[in-house]
Nucleic acid binder design. Structure first.
Lengths: 363, 363
DNA sequence: CTGTTAGCGCGTTCAC
DNA sequence: GTGAACGCGCTAACAG
């Protein structure tokens, strides 16, 4: 029923091995023979049997890209960029030569699903795996992931982190491209402080995520640097806790967290959000409370997603080179580019000052 | 080096066949034996060899989801929703039983890459393929896609369209979930007309996309219905052409197209955009020209992506149930739900009236 | 440069 | 309920 390599070989009057060789292109074959084979392939509409090929060669052309939430452009941009480097441009014939199959797997932020996907990719003997975005900070889970990655690496799967900090256990098999979330968070809050803000609300992400923690740490660093954050026992101690509200990385959470902050501390003059999506929700909450941005309250985000520049007023935020990072991760996964020295690169974050932040109202 | 079924069998003191049977669970096995086998699996950290398994069984657990642009939440939402139905919740062990591997493939809107991905999926003997979003209206390409899908279906791959119109050649092997883009476009423009608008600019998508065409057709239908669009020869004929500008589905294109429309026809009182992302660019352009929304110019979008409600003013748009449609497509692909009667279902679009549209200024 | 020969690891008949 | 044997379709040594 289905046409096999042998059928092609018969039609081209060559041996199966020769057909395999022209298809994989890794071996010298006479031009005339190759011609004949290719014609037979087209005539018969032959498509390689992937599983058989993978079994025999002990490798597959599958590359997995894991993301927390594919509906979030933060991940979509990185994953799409990685795919451009992996999938290859195609040759327009749809014949698909030595192309890799770059596929995106959506974990929904669940550690279990992340592990399941890794197992599935391991089962497929994936050529490489790219893990994007913040990790969940749970020791058991981290250990499980690390162990799983070690086995994958062992089996020849290349592992790349993108926008994700290196494993805490120093697993050296992994190349990591980490964003400077802490530095970005710090510079953002320094900017707010420089404008004159002293009471700054912070809408944080889910508490167990590395991204959340690093951005928040940067924020606090800046407060401490400005002498704003009080130590325990000082008057005003605990303020920083009161002004920080955690929640998922979505619009609604930003909306509600901001209302909560405004309730707890009506005198805040600025809100920093853990990412742009959340910041949008924060803006809505601020406006619904009848306050103007930035005259009454400044709002800032993080990531610089495409829509942020179109917010009204345009969102002050921290730009992460998502596309570039994704593309680079893709190239490393393909072996087209060397991993960074030491296996770890920190990618700079750039402060983008726009209209949503301004000096606080004179009191 | 790598542990195989035989190793597990040896450790459990059973035959390889028995191990295979407990792993696939489709065969009666004594409880005590199964117990022993599973323990051996865990002890040895055994992971099934996917390619070998697929080769022997002539099926694979791969399900492909094709999208035009994964950085666009329009696709991210649908693809993520489909994956929730396909990937299964996992059992928390990371062991991965009979799970399918749902993977997203980003075509970047290129017909060639679409074809290449289909070939790659065919090569992997994918269990199902979900194609999302508008198709490219090129006869040669349509035919190629249709032929390819026919072969896939032939090989037992289930095919589902999601937010994509059925094949024009009536390929009946495909279940199609189509959005009512035409009806949505019509109702949106009817809304503008009802507000009193007569000169309405239209920022269309790429001309070769079905989505673009259907939405535009709906728009024109509404104009004609209101007696606004003139026939050829009438005074004002060609206006509708002059007021329509095509471009990619991105923010920048919306910005530039809007500037162009404003240049061509400074008297337009409303701009309808082909989608929300484009509408955001349109809003920016309108504002940069010193015009207010909606007092001077109304702006409307399409899709009702999550950020649209947070635009200022909130965007009037047409809601498409992206998540629900994606999930349903996923279920059909898994065989958990029957295809719609006749293989085709049209999914309704709902007009969402918000602050960005209002009656035109009295002249 | 090309053909021949052996498996790759598992699912699936068959027997028992 | 379990084991033995065969073959899925292809690649990777070898020869030649």
């Amino acid at each position: 029923m289905t046409v096999t390599l042998a059928d092609v070989a018969a039609r081209a009057r060559v041996s199966p091995a020769t057909v395999s060789r022209v298809l994989n292109g890794n071996y010298p074959v006479a031009a005339s023979t190759r011609e004949r084979v290719l014609r037979a392939v087209d005539d018969l509409d032959y498509v390689l049997n992937g599983p058989a090929s993978s079994l025999a060669a002990a490798t597959s052309d599958l590359v997995g890209i894991l993301v927390n939430d594919i509906a979030d452009p933060f991940f979509g941009i990185m994953a799409g960029a990685a795919q451009t480097q992996i999938g290859g441009p195609g040759d327009g014939s749809g014949r698909a030569g030595g192309e890799k199959l770059a596929v995106i797997c959506n974990t929904g932020g669940s550690p279990e699903r992340e592990l399941t996907y890794l197992t599935l990719l391991q089962r497929q003997r994936a050529a490489a795996v790219v893990l994007t975005g913040g990790a969940v900070e749970n020791e058991a889970h981290q250990a499980a992931i690390s162990a799983k990655l070690a086995r994958l690496a062992d089996a020849g799967t290349r592992i790349v982190f993108c926008g994700r900090p290196p494993l805490s256990d120093g697993n050296a098999l992994v190349a990591a491209l980490a964003f400077d979330n802490r530095g970005g968070g710090r510079r953002l809050t320094e900017h707010l402080v420089a404008l004159g803000h002293r009471r700054i609300g912070y809408v944080a992400g889910p508490p167990e995520r590395t991204t959340t923690r690093h951005r928040l740490e940067g924020h606090r660093e800046a407060l401490r640097g400005a002498g704003i954050e009080a130590g325990p026992g000082d008057p005003g101690a605990g303020d920083e806790e009161r002004l920080t509200v955690h929640g998922p990385y979505d619009r609604r959470s930003g909306y509600e967290a901001t209302l909560e902050i405004l309730r707890r501390a009506p005198d805040v003059t600025a809100i920093a959000a853990a990412n742009d999506t959340v910041a949008l929700g924060a803006c809505a909450a601020v406006r619904d409370r009848g306050l103007r941005i930035p005259q009454d309250i400044s709002v800032a985000g993080f990531d610089d997603l495409p829509f942020s520049v179109d917010a009204v007023p345009a969102l002050t935020t921290v730009r992460l080179p998502l596309f570039e990072a994704g593309a680079r991760a893709g190239r490393i996964a393909m072996g087209k580019e060397n991993p960074p020295p030491g296996g770890i690169a920190t990618i700079a974050a750039e402060l983008m000052i726009r209209g949503s932040t301004a000096p606080p109202r004179a009191v």
